[in-house]
C-alpha cells in the first residue's frame, strides 16, 4: 500500500494541488459547483427511485421518465466527478486514508451494483409494468438506491468534518 501513498503524496505536490490548497476561493468555488452537480444527481435519482417505489409520478411511464431524466443525471454526475477529482487533489493521500471518504465510495460502488442489477435483470420485464405498479424487485431496487445515496451524502459530509480543512 505504501507505493499508493507515495504516489498520492507526489500528486499532492503538483501545480493543481498547490493552487487548490493555497487559493482562498478555489476550494469553496469548486465545492459550490460540486453541490449543484450532486444535487441534480441525488434529486433526479430520487425522482426515479420514488417512481420505482410506486410513491410518486405513478401516472408517468417509467421508460419515458428514465429517457428524459437520466441524461441529466449522467451529465451532472460527470460534472461532480470532475469537481470532486480536483477537490481531492488538494490533499490526495489525506482523502485516500480517510475512513468516511472510503465509505462514501463503498456506498457509490454498491449503488452502481444495484443499478446494474436493475438494468440487466430486474427491468427485463419492464413492458409489463411500465405504466403500472412496479413489481417487488423494482421496489427493492428503488429503496436500496435511495438509501445508498443518502449514505453517500452522509459520509461525504462526515469527510468534511474528519478532514478538517478550510471550512467545515
Amino acid at each position: 500500500m505504501q507505493w499508493i501513498i507515495d504516489y498520492l503524496n507526489s500528486l499532492g505536490d503538483s501545480p493543481v494541488s498547490l493552487w487548490i490548497a493555497e487559493s482562498t476561493w478555489a476550494f469553496p468555488a469548486l465545492e459550490v459547483v460540486h453541490i449543484f452537480a450532486i444535487s441534480m444527481v441525488f434529486g433526479t435519482i430520487a425522482i426515479i427511485d420514488l417512481r420505482l417505489l410506486g410513491l410518486a409520478s405513478t401516472r408517468r411511464p417509467y421508460s419515458e421518465m428514465a429517457r428524459e431524466l437520466l441524461p441529466w443525471t449522467w451529465g451532472a454526475f460527470f460534472a461532480a466527478a470532475i469537481c470532486g477529482s480536483v477537490l481531492i487533489m488538494s490533499r490526495p493521500a489525506g482523502y485516500f486514508e480517510n475512513a468516511d471518504f472510503r465509505l462514501k465510495f463503498v456506498c457509490m460502488a454498491l449503488a452502481c451494483l444495484n443499478m446494474l442489477v436493475f438494468q440487466f435483470i430486474t427491468s427485463k420485464n419492464l413492458a409489463g409494468w411500465d405504466r403500472g405498479a412496479p413489481p417487488v424487485a423494482a421496489r427493492v431496487a428503488g429503496a436500496v438506491s435511495i438509501l445508498l445515496w443518502i449514505g453517500v451524502v452522509y459520509f461525504a459530509r462526515m469527510t468534511g468534518f474528519t478532514m478538517v480543512q478550510g471550512g467545515a
Binding site: I35, F42, I47, V153, Y154, M158, F161
Partner: peptide
C-alpha cells in the same frame, strides 16, 4: 450536527432538482 447537515443537504438536493424540473 452531522445528522442535521445530512438531512439539510438531502433537502437542498430535492429543492434544487424540483426547481430545475
Amino acid at each position: 450536527i452531522p445528522l442535521m447537515q445530512t438531512i439539510h443537504i438531502v433537502c437542498v438536493a430535492l429543492v434544487f432538482t424540483s426547481v430545475v424540473m
